[in-house]
Amino acid sequence: MKRTAVFVAIMLSMASSLFCQEASLLTNQNRKLFAAYLFENRDYLRAAEEYTFMNAQEQNDTLLYNAGLCYFKMAEFEKANAMLSSLSNQKFQERTRLLQLKIALMQKSSALDSLSHPEFYPTPEINQTYKRLSILNQILNGTIESRATIEQNFNREDVSSLQNFNNSFAHPKKKSPAAAALLSALIPGAGKIYTGNYGDGVTAFLVTGLFAYLTVENVYHGHPFRTWLFGSLAAFFNAGNIYGSFISARNYNVENAHHLENDYDTYLNERDYFVPKEIEEPFK
């Protein structure tokens, strides 16, 4: 009986201590489960903290990759790149390269070219993703020459859109600032109308025309002060209009390029940059 009581007591204490270790919310095993839950719920910052904490203890590439992936999801590309670049395990190489390629494409970075070596991407699926990302980058530079290159690598419904983007990047709509200034010098407001600012163009034409008319009127009626006043105003408005037309053309070009890049970004974001979903999921 005594023996049994002692045995029960030992069992109880063992069970408690075993449980304490197992059930502690802060064991690395539980932290992993919790980090995966946070990642799934898009709480990437907390997930990154959990992975980073565990990695500091375990020095494990899986944890480091997952932490990098969290920062990638938060669009903190510098931190993500730093973590992904320090991975030594070969099994992460392909995914890491693809993520870095995507980051470079998203940031329109020149690092993209240095990552674009097919030998990094040996498996067919990864190779296909690499090719796509590489083509998307070439479209951004407007350097795709044949439609076939796009057709071979993308679905039919995406081909025409991508081809259009390629054409737009290769031959962007531009207005010449010099031509706009010259037009406005010849006919006040014409340069603004050339750059699509119709309201400004008509206003410039009317205001400059009005001051010019008042100048001429006052010349005929022999009012020298008013002639100088309205003449100066006409010259001032016209000079402003010529300069404004020059700037307007330059703004048109910048805005156009900006809109095109935004449209391209939106289009790629909607399709997740044609990168398979599993590449952006944490390793178990």
Binding site: V8, M11, L12, A15, S16, F19, C20, A23, S24, L25
Partner: peptide, 17 residues
């Protein structure tokens, strides 16, 4: 003994949380 073990585990879980 299995019952005792499970009971202990269950009792320990609550304080942890």
């Amino acid at each position: 003994f299995t019952f005792i073990f499970l009971l202990t585990s269950l009792l320990s879980a609550q304080p942890e949380l």
